[in-house]
Design a protein around this nucleic acid. Sequence first.
RNA 1: GUCCCCAUCGUCUAGAGGCCUAGGACACCAGCCUUUCACGUUGGUAACACGGGUUCGAAUCCCGUUGGGGACGCCA
Length: 464
Amino acid sequence: MTVRTRFAPSPTGFLHIGGARTALFNMLFARHHGGQYLLRIEDTDKARSTEAAVQQILNSLAWLGLSPDEEPVFQSHREARHAEVARELLAAGKAYLAFDTAEELAAMREQAMKEGRPPRYDGSWRDRDPSDAPPDRKPAIRLKAPRQGSTIVEDLVQGRVEVQNSELDDMIILRSDGTPTYLHAVVVDDHDMGITHVIRGDDHLTNTFRQCMVYDAMGWHRPYFAHIPLIHGADGAKLSKRHGAVGVMEFEAQGFLPEAVCNYLLRLGWGHGDEEIVPRDRAIELFDLKDVGRAASRMDYAKLTHLNGVYLRGAEDARLTEEVLKRLAHRGIDYGTLGGDRVRALMPALKERAKTLEELTSAAAFAAQEGPPPLEPKAATQLTPEAKALLADLAQFLTDAPWEQAELMNWLRDYAEVKGMKLGQVAQPLRIALSGSTQSPPIDAVLTALGRTEAMDRILAAAE
RNA sequence: GUCCCCAUCGUCUAGAGGCCUAGGACACCAGCCUUUCACGUUGGUAACACGGGUUCGAAUCCCGUUGGGGACGCCA
């Protein structure tokens, strides 16, 4: 059996971090078994689905490296098939026409709730003759649910779950306007797409029992199910916008790397011993549903940030430089070819001290820009008259220095020694002059990256 | 309300009856390294929700309590 999984988001908003993890698990599971990972857009709710959201989801998945192996399936394009299956069930006597109105159903639910019963459809039309129906009413099609016994699902994550059939009711599979309901469409599509493993959020666990009824009625083989726990916000409540960044593309904007986000998401709910850094290849190698936990987990931005730092330090300089220049431009910071080169030259040192691309961009700005950098408040207070005098003297001293990193370091050490100062006392004013900040990459690296002319300009400017 | 799921440091987790005086990671605190900041490194604070069983022995199995979460639509 070739494993086929799918991620099935509804395009009613941006792809959030929980959906991203579901997609990730689906992909990893399929890859681990050498199978396929597919995407189905569940856009049957015309009122809430938008083209923009579809595009957003596609972009988000692409950014994460979770694009599907085959063209996405649009559920809305398959409505004829859904209706066909519903009518087949009707013809086979496994479903029936129900002529209830929305008001009648609402009243039924309310009444049931009031009496402490579960709000279920009472099956009024199950055995009633359709000719009883008022002539102007359009019927929905309801599936006849078994009333005795129980339904058992052997969930690959949750284990064996059993629900009494008396808890279920005759669900609508085809609305009175001829469109399919979600519970029905999902089953038909999963079946037709040859999905072998349905991996989704555990908010769908109770739905599964209803879906099983469709599989059973059609005589179709049920796929394996795996319901993974949801992700909660830092406060333990369901993830929502007030929890800071939740949309996948927000993470991109905040300077997170897709591989770091994936690694973080993977470790949320899945573990393999003490392994924390699990790149894609390793994840594919190790991933198994039996290692997925059953408890909901919380979003922890501090840990994500740490992980991002790890991946950032390991990333290619060229890639990071490109990202930083793009972000500098986005910030409206002007840099020329020289500025770009300086950032490139400094990248190995820069990336050691940043955790996100945004931090990296801020840290690189001084090198990108032309001329003396703006002084940070803290740096300004350290630029005392004494410091300025020192810089003036240092400029003089460095005039004849060969502009090479190791050499420059030797010269600085010599200078400090001659003056009877510690290296730090020399390096710090220099750092401020060159970077405008009290924090920067090592001073020799900054000096060489800037080049003699630019460096000298800045030292002299700060000395005044 | 009814049904379903869950429960180890603040957070993510390791743990499938003795290897647990409960391990790792993030965060936090202290030290070291050091031209700043990071990185790195050493150490520290910190958890088996509670109550009953089962067993020679329970974080691990069972039951209950409490606490979280989810589902109950002609939404997906």
